[in-house]
Design a protein around this nucleic acid. Structure first.
Lengths: 213, 213
DNA sequence: CCTCTATGTAACTATTGGGTTAGTTGAACT
DNA sequence: AGTTCAACTAACCCAATAGTTACATAGAGG
């Protein structure tokens, strides 16, 4: 038990194996969704044995649930670190829009997992108390920001923080999750540096016009 | 060959069988995506034999492609019937937002199919010339509307019709496709009559503020 | 240095599921 | 009424896949 981290790497390392499995599962689920992911492939990717997956995570489904939970905890934790309270309301709002955009861009597996979960009617997420708790903090954060901006006469009164949150998420989420069909329908490369910059600016503009007086 | 439609229903009817298969496939793909859908279940739902599916549609993949193509043709055709040119630009824009919302609400299988297609990097849609052609007409329609509104001094100048299209789609699409996880994250019934009305009004407001001077 | 258990491997099972084969039959046209 | 062919059925094949069993061993604690 003494200072496991300073020891030279053990050949047998339960913690490390679990982490490798979780990382591999995230990639695999992101690429193929819950239904398309293969337990054998996760094992291979994790350089672990399939037996270990069942040993540590019981079933494919509960492994998915765990990966999904971790994904939600990650994004909600990152959001909480934004510290919007210290900023001018307009700057804070823009920062939130930028953050959401960047998070989706950098973590496409989050989008795929959410899509997959919705295909399954959120039956895994339903079981997760922790996700419900941290999500409440997001709404509170935006609500606080809206009230502060309204009090300063910068924002319109009476905007529903949930509707705003949905909209901020939507204008980024749709763009990224449908980037493949979008490229065909709109006959553009949506992922070029220039296209990304343009879209982010458009999104900031959309939200500012929606919220500001 | 004479007046097939007036004849009494044949026991053997190639056309009717194909239609039943397509309808069944649409439902099945909508419920489970490409990977999750089962050919046996499609056959059962269509009250047809599995052999018939392969006879008419070659493979599960090309059946999916056909259903997806039909779905795109359907929505694009419906859009073209809106006849926005006859309306005041603001009314036309609102009509488009309402249409998009209602279409997603009434045709949830379209959303699932698009999600599934993006999971597969749009490899089926890439092959479809017809979808690319009709999609171009959508962009043209919105572009015409934007120019007309700008000329009348109602809309801002220089709005990119593609960005606007994406935004109109996004604020509806995200709401519906993530309605299950959304209900948990935001702790609300997103599909009640009242919630739907509120959201649609919010969306119209969002787009009007974005486009109008 | 011995023992016991958590960590690990590999081979196996049972089932599912896309696709096929072999054969049957309704009805359109002579 | 007979011929033909497309429409149709049922039973089959076999590769893939979630989950299991049997067995091996590193290494922590006595």
């Amino acid at each position: 038990m003494v200072a496991a981290k300073t020891r030279k790497p053990r050949i047998r390392d339960a913690e490390a194996t679990q982490k490798r499995i979780l990382a591999a599962a995230k990639q695999e689920f992101a690429k193929k969704g819950l239904g398309g992911a293969r337990v054998d492939d996760i094992a291979a990717r994790a350089k672990a044995n399939k037996r270990m997956i069942y040993h540590y995570f019981d079933s494919k489904e509960s492994l998915f649930q765990r990966v999904l939970e971790d994904a939600y905890v990650d994004i909600r934790t990152a959001e909480q670190k934004l510290e919007l309270d210290h900023l001018d309301p307009k700057d804070a709002l823009e920062k939130l829009v930028r953050f959401t955009w960047k998070y989706y861009l950098d973590n496409p597996e989050f989008l795929t997992m959410v899509n997959s979960e919705n295909l399954h009617k959120a039956r895994h997420l339903k079981k997760s108390k922790v996700v419900q708790d941290i999500s409440r903090r997001l709404v509170t954060m935006v609500d606080t920001l809206l009230e502060r901006g309204a009090k300063q006469g910068l924002f319109r009164d009476g905007i529903d923080p949930v509707q705003l949150n949905i909209t901020i998420a939507a204008i980024g989420y749709y763009y990224f999750t449908n980037r493949f069909t979008g490229a065909i329908i709109y006959e553009r490369d949506l992922m070029s540096r220039e296209a990304l910059d343009t879209r982010l600016q458009f999104n900031i503009d959309t939200i500012m016009r929606l919220v500001c007086k």
